[in-house]
Design a protein around this nucleic acid. Structure first.
Length: 342
DNA sequence: AAGAAGCTCAACCGCGAGAGA
DNA sequence: TTCTCTCGCGGTTGAGCTTCT
């Protein structure tokens, strides 16, 4: 015996809700509450499935919902929680008053995922792409590493090209192109430039893999030395990342949840402009966005003091960190949610 | 100016958990 | 203990809108 449908499909209206339907549902719920969703459409005079009514109410009609843009703080919360609990949207939404799981999920899928990818961070694991590559590369013989880079390029090329060609920045200088009318033009990447871009991506990826695979955690970015903190992705922190396309007028900064920065801390998600060469310069040299300044190491050392003590209290001292914020003390989450998951 | 491509978000679908008979 | 039913969740879809070519 199969599962019975939640309602008869025949007399049930589907698709967009009309204002009249919204009114009927809202006024019925205002009077009777949301006790039995199966009965609500019948009693409210709606030709809708109960499930559809519930969805409309919870995602749109509820009076306590926010409908505007997500704020930086909300985005930051989403990213941090996502790194801990994964795609458990209802859990994440519960931390954001007025937001629904659907809102959060849509925002993640349409905006945040791309932002993180654009910063060279894998939105699934919250690790820099090059760390992932490096982890794989450590299991390979050197000749295979080059093939890995090639394969990785196959995966990321389209997205990278997309970002580069649509970012409205010159992919190589990192500066917005100035045109006559509005001051900011669009980088047009010709066929040759595209090929050149691909070559740079290849080169950069190969270098990143080689260097990390060799345990060399310093990379050179346009003459500036960057330090990768740790070797297991525990510090997938980007500092001074600015991308005018991805973040609008704001610097978009990714602070790894593993650090447990307070939400209100000024550093996180705050405006942090940087020079073009540092941020959006040649992708090859940028190591696919893996940019962690040495100051991070200092922060980590300092953190060993008071804050580390705080972690001990939470019984999380000694966790290896990894990609998940096992030592994050920000969120009052149940223990089962704090365990690493992919 | 028009068609194509990309993007957003409301809505749908199927499944699993949990309550209650 | 088993079965039925409801609810809630996460993944997916597609209409409508915007941007690009």
């Amino acid at each position: 015996m199969g599962r019975i449908p939640c309602c008869e499909k025949d007399n049930v209206k589907r698709g967009q809700w009309t204002p009249e339907e919204d009114n009927k549902l809202s006024s019925y719920i205002a009077q009777h509450g949301t006790r039995n969703w199966r009965l609500i459409p019948k009693n409210a005079g709606l030709q809708r499935c109960g499930k559809s009514c519930r969805l409309r109410w919870t995602n749109y009609l509820r009076p306590d919902l926010k409908h505007g843009e997500f704020t930086d703080a909300e985005e930051q919360t989403i990213v941090k929680l996502h790194s801990v609990v994964g795609n458990r949207w209802s859990l994440i939404a519960a931390q954001l008053p007025g937001r629904t799981d659907n809102d959060v999920k849509n925002h993640w899928n349409t905006k945040l995922k791309k932002k993180l990818s654009g910063m060279g961070i894998d939105p699934v694991t919250h690790k820099p792409f090059s760390h992932l590559m490096a982890e794989i590369a450590t299991t390979l013989a050197p000749p295979q590493v080059a093939h890995l880079a090639e394969a990785a390029l196959g995966c990321f090329k389209d997205e990278m090209l997309h970002l580069l060609t649509k970012k409205r920045v010159d992919p190589f200088s990192g500066m917005p192109q100035v045109t006559g009318n509005n001051g900011v033009g669009y980088a047009s990447v010709s066929g040759n430039d595209k090929e050149e871009t691909i070559e740079k991506i290849k080169l950069g990826l190969s270098r990143a893999i080689m260097q990390e695979g060799n345990g060399d955690h310093h990379v050179v970015n346009n003459g500036k030395s960057w330090a990768l903190v740790g070797s297991h992705g525990e510090a997938s922190v980007m500092h001074d990342v600015y991308d005018p396309m991805l973040s609008g007028d704001h610097g978009f900064r990714y602070d790894a949840p593993a650090y447990g920065n307070d939400v209100g801390e000024a550093s996180a998600w705050s405006q942090s402009l940087c020079t073009g060469s540092t941020c959006t310069g040649g992708v090859g040299e940028q190591q696919a966005g893996v940019i962690v300044e040495k100051e991070v190491e200092v922060e980590m050392e300092e953190e060993d003091g008071e804050e580390a003590e705080g972690r001990k209290i939470n019984g999380r001292k000694g966790d290896e960190g990894g990609m998940f914020a096992s030592d994050c003390v920000l969120w009052d989450l149940p223990d089962d949610l704090m365990s690493p998951m992919v």
